[in-house]
């Protein structure tokens, strides 16, 4: 064994506590730790998002290509990474990696796993948006004499861009929530922090409130940004 340990150690049987009222003082005391962890959730999510997108665009074009040597690998990628749990993918990379000579820090392994995973979903979002541009558009463009690439660049992609924002937004929100999984390979972010403080304070409800608040803020802001972006592409008004 490579000496790696899972992010969690449990005190079995749970805990009991007499006091049931919400302990606001405790919340205020540990809030700074959560704020720091929230930043780390943002960083992990953002890097994974960037990695996911940079995989997804080429993968979507490969998936749409007529060339089998491009199409089949892209198909396999999408099918495998959408067909298995993200947690398992993270475990294979982090715990299994050293066995095949890839030893990554938790943070790197986390970003890599999340990025590759969300990339497979984003591939389908992008492909769907490109396919949703009507055939008449391509035909009109080709009938003017534009070639395939010019048609893609000038006619299809500008329209697909607007159509892919919503589905990519859904992927992004899922990614932010999914980033909590990297706590299982001991990346110090929101879920990890919530778990650690729950173990040390026996105050699950307070820790849930704190972590939830940060997640809700991050997700609400992201949704807003996505909506704004979507509004910009609404030329059809």
């Amino acid at each position: 064994m490579s000496g790696r340990s899972a992010g969690f150690r449990f005190i079995p049987g749970g805990t009991t506590i007499e006091e049931t009222a919400v302990d606001y003082q405790l919340i205020i005391k540990v809030a700074p730790f959560f704020a720091k962890a929230a930043w780390s959730t943002v960083v992990v999510s953002f890097l994974s998002f960037a990695l996911g997108l940079s995989i997804a665009f080429p993968a979507a074009f490969c998936r749409l290509s007529q060339n089998r040597f491009l199409q089949i690998p892209a198909r396999v990628y999408v099918s495998v990474f959408r067909g298995t749990p993200c947690l398992i993918q993270l475990f294979v990379i982090y715990f299994g990696g050293p066995q095949i000579g890839i030893q990554l820090e938790p943070f790197m392994a986390g970003v890599l796993g999340l990025g590759i995973n969300i990339g497979s979903y984003m591939t389908e979002s992008i492909r769907g948006a490109i396919l949703a541009v009507s055939r008449g558009q391509t035909e009109a463009s080709r009938s003017l004499g534009l070639n395939k690439f010019q048609t893609m660049r000038k006619v299809v992609l500008p329209q697909a861009a607007g159509l892919m924002i919503s589905p990519l937004g859904v992927n992004t929100i899922a990614l932010i929530k999914g980033s909590s999984l990297v706590s299982a390979i001991s990346v110090l972010e929101l879920a990890y922090t919530a778990h650690r403080f729950t173990n040390s304070t026996y105050r699950p409800f307070e820790m849930f409130i704190l972590a939830s608040t940060f997640y809700l803020v991050i997700i609400t802001l992201t949704s807003k940004a996505i909506r704004n972006l979507n509004g910009r592409f609404a030329y059809e008004k």
């Binding site: 049987g13 805990t15 929530k177 999914g178 409800f205 972590a211 997640y215 809700l216």
Partner: peptide
């Protein structure tokens, strides 16, 4: 709104540690 906006993992923590408390 709360359950849609929080990760499943966090919710699982809440139940796993919280239910014994009540």
């Amino acid at each position: 709104w709360v359950f849609r906006g929080t990760p499943l993992l966090l919710q699982l923590f809440l139940f796993y540690f919280g239910l014994p408390q009540i």
